Computed example of a mutant assay.
Amino acid sequence: MSKYLPFTRDNDLTLLYLGQRYFTALVAAIDSATREVVLETYIFEPDDAGRQVAAALERAAQRGVAVRVILDGVGTSRRLPFLVDWVESGVVHRIYNPRLFGKFGFSRTHRKLAIIDHAVAFVGGINIIDDDNAGDGTRMDGPRWDFAVQCRGPIVAAISIAFHIQWLRLAPGYLGTPFRYRRRGQRGRLHAPYAGQAAFVARDNLHNRRAVEKAYLTALGRARHEVWLANPYFVPGRRLRRALTQAAKRGVAVHLLIGRNEFRLLDTAVPWLYAKLLDAGVRIGEYDVRQLHGKVAVVDDVWATVGSSNLDALSLFLNHEANVVVLDDPLVIELRDHIRQAFSEARLIDPARYGERSRWRRLRQWAAYRLYRFVMRLLTRGNYD
């Protein structure tokens, strides 16, 4: 396993908690653009947030800024009402995999990226959708629990390259990526001597198939004191589960925050994985105060990641994902406090009560997990372990 990440230092990083703060910062950055705006997202809804961002993109194009947008063919409907306005104003867009099974197989672009003038970039888990929009025409009781990072500094170059490779990949007549971007960076130590040290980690199906997974494995393998990990869809492969249990067994306080009440199959399947984690001493909290959508983690108060990658087969082995990894920056502590607060509101899994659950419940959990595993192995062509 590679131990290297393309870390750069002297980056200016700002944690954006919840969609409203993200959209405010994003629209302000787009409105200040003078040369180029690019954006890639899984969901782009024509609700208040979507119209706000779409209008900013149109304004930028109308004043001569080059504006390009990548939308996912399943996550975003191609019947968006403002696509016609985009064409008229000069906003250019491309669709990743327009059909469920298309040119790129079953994969989706699940990344949430924006780069303005090669100077400021946004990476995270927040789609272009209202905080409380459930996506099915209904409203949720509260805003999604989610994050993005606003980046300035050398890391923006790596984020920009990732978008432009994806843009070329979606060009008509694409036959293959015309070049490979391989950058060897500073060794990914948990303790770094410089503030603002960060790396961009992108997962695709060409050159970086396990990039996000490896970033997690490296950090968990070097953890010595404390791990805070929050993820809505927790069905990782054996290696990640083993890394969590091994960390707990060597005395690391491992806290796992898992989202609930979004997909019934996962709500039933995920608890089947709790047994070995609980036996190792991992503390598990199920969060259903509101929709947990953030994909974040903090290790030893010095390492953190924010991004789009869920810890499931689709994100780790199939979809295109993007995360930022941060070292020794105030953002790490700020993120840790958010996860810690949410964990305090979660329903903790009691090992004794979990062990006493009925045979019928165990059978349902086992069957749901096996069904999920079977489907994922088919979709990932056996890569899901």
Results as ranks from 00 to 15, higher is better:
Arg79Cys: 07
Val65His: 01
Gln365Trp: 05
Tyr174Gly: 12
Gly259Ala: 04
Asp350Phe: 11
Leu190Asn: 13
Lys112Gln: 11
Leu327Gln: 12
Leu229His: 02
Asn133Pro: 00
Val227Ile: 14
Arg373Glu: 15
His338Lys: 13
Pro143Val: 07
Met1Lys: 11
Asp12Pro: 07
Ala171Tyr: 01
Ala367Ser: 04
Arg63Thr: 05
Asp131Glu: 13
Ser309Asn: 04
Pro172His: 07
Arg364Leu: 15
Gly124Tyr: 07
Asp350Met: 08
Arg9His: 10
Val270Leu: 13
Arg182Ala: 12
Tyr216Ala: 06
Asp141Trp: 11
Asp72Lys: 04
Ala248Arg: 01
Phe101Ser: 12
Pro98Trp: 11
Arg336Asn: 10
Gly307Tyr: 09
Arg21Ala: 07
Glu286Gly: 01
Trp145Met: 02
Val302Gly: 04
Gln341Tyr: 14
Gly19Ile: 04
Ile30Cys: 02
Glu88Met: 05
Ala275Cys: 04
Val212Ala: 13
His255Glu: 10
Trp272Tyr: 15
His338Leu: 10
Thr34Pro: 00
Gln246Val: 15
Ala243Glu: 09
Glu286Asn: 07
Ala54Gln: 02
Phe147Gly: 08
Gly73Pro: 04
Ser32Pro: 02
Gly153Cys: 08
Leu244Asn: 10
Ala297Cys: 14
Gly237Asn: 01
Arg353Cys: 09
Ala346Tyr: 04
His320Thr: 02
Gln365Val: 05
Phe317Arg: 03
Asp146Cys: 04
Val53His: 02
Gly64His: 09
Asp328Pro: 02
Ala304His: 06
Lys295Asp: 01
Val289Gln: 01
Asp72Asn: 06
Arg59Phe: 04
Arg347Tyr: 14
Val326Phe: 06
Gly281Ala: 10
Phe122Cys: 03
Gly124Glu: 06
Asp10Met: 13
Val87Met: 05
Pro143Ala: 06
Arg94Cys: 04
Leu327Thr: 10
Trp228His: 03
Ala219Glu: 02
Ala158Lys: 05
Glu262Phe: 05
Arg242Ser: 14
Leu175Ala: 07
Arg169Gly: 03
Thr14Asn: 08
Lys112Met: 14
Ala230Cys: 14
Ala247Lys: 01
Leu26Gly: 00
Arg9Gly: 08
Arg189Asn: 12
Gln341Asp: 15
Gln150His: 06
Ile165Asp: 14
Thr380Ala: 03
Lys295Val: 03
Arg357His: 08
Arg336Pro: 08
Lys103His: 14
Gly237Arg: 03
Asn261Val: 06
Gly259Ile: 02
Val120Gly: 11
Gly355Ser: 07
His93Leu: 09
His110Asp: 07
